[in-house]
């Protein structure tokens, strides 16, 4: 627990650094929200007036500190574009991305586990080689391109799936699943490739360990060894390294959401970058980073539990 607490404390500077980096970067992009809101026919005086109304005329450090002050009171602020609370925008979009991420992980597990075990059992045989090669192809296919191909085949050519029209899972479960299937598969195949490679490597490490050899020496069959002993032990490193994939997954989901018109977290972030909605960018970036940080923390804690040497 003390370890977890220490890690949590060290996360605070990470998040502050991050928010400063994000704040500085987005203010360096040309253009500002007042211009975007008023559009191409706005006069400079109108733009200045709206900047004042939005508080964009204040010195940057002051703007940053007032935002930070809001955060410390648990307030993410409001969108500069339409005044919706940023927290509400995030809560609206997060379930979409969460569903996409969870679906992706389920697809990845469903593919990677059987194949990963197969590859490990038949290590260095053709089954292993083929599986490994296929998984390398899997990680080499850009999810957003796969998404386009799925659109061409499954919605344009044969009308199996709708290409958009997201509805929440709990209110329209069937509609939701039919809309989410293609994007989930598009991101899922890549993650399956990543997971498969990790699982195979981890299984092989475990299979080389003494207790497995002992088990085998006792005459327990190969498959039984795999399922009862090896898999369980191989999972821990897979879960922990798998956790680290979350940040990468989030990045990849951004364009997939755009291709499939999904109103998710990635779309929100990209849209707010394009409309210079500073508060929304900062809020979403912070939440995205927090998610990654928390996952990393869980990973580290798991490591700490598994391997006491890691607890410095």
């Amino acid at each position: 627990m003390a370890y977890a607490a220490k890690r949590l404390v060290t996360m605070i500077p990470v998040l502050i650094f991050l928010s400063i980096i994000v704040f500085s970067l987005i203010h360096l992009i040309p253009g500002n929200p007042a211009q975007v809101i008023l559009g191409q026919d706005a006069s400079p005086s109108s733009i200045r007036a709206l900047e004042m109304q939005l508080g964009l005329n204040l010195p940057l450090p002051e703007q940053y500190l007032s935002w930070l002050g809001g955060i410390l009171h648990g307030n993410l602020g409001r969108s500069l574009l339409d005044n919706q609370p940023v927290s509400q925008l995030i809560l609206q979009s997060l379930p979409v991305t969460a569903e996409l991420a969870v679906g992706t992980i389920i697809v990845a597990i469903a593919i990677a586990f059987p194949l990963g075990i197969l590859a490990a059992v038949y290590r260095d045989r053709w089954a292993d080689a083929v599986t490994l090669f296929v998984s390398t192809i899997g990680i080499s296919v850009p999810p957003f391109w796969l998404g386009m191909i799925f659109l061409i085949e499954f919605t344009v050519r044969v009308h199996w799936f709708p290409s958009s029209g997201y509805e929440p899972l709990w209110s329209h479960p069937l509609r939701n699943l039919s809309v989410m299937t293609l994007p989930i598969l598009a991101t899922g195949f890549r993650e399956a490739g990543v997971l498969l490679r990790m699982l195979r490597a981890s299984l092989l490490d475990v299979l080389d360990q003494d207790f497995i050899r002992t088990a085998r020496a006792k005459g327990i069959s190969g498959w039984k060894v795999i399922f009862h002993h090896a898999t369980k032990n191989a999972l821990i490193p897979v879960i922990t390294t798998g956790g680290l994939q979350i940040a990468g997954l989030l990045g990849g989901i951004v364009i997939t959401e755009t291709i499939f018109s999904l109103p998710g977290f990635g779309s929100l972030l990209v849209e707010s970058v394009f409309s210079r909605d500073y508060t929304t960018i900062q809020g979403t970036a912070l939440v995205a980073a927090l998610a990654v940080v928390v996952v990393n923390l869980l990973v580290d804690i798991t490591y700490g539990l598994v391997d006491p040497r890691m607890r410095k």
Binding site: V14, L18, I21, L28, G248, I255, L269, V273, A285, A288
Partner: peptide, 19 residues
């Protein structure tokens, strides 16, 4: 380094390229 890595890579590249 943690902070940079905690930010989705593509979004970072997007913001930098826009800048």
């Amino acid at each position: 380094i943690d902070a940079l890595q905690a930010f989705p890579f593509l979004i970072l590249a997007l913001v930098l390229a826009a800048m």
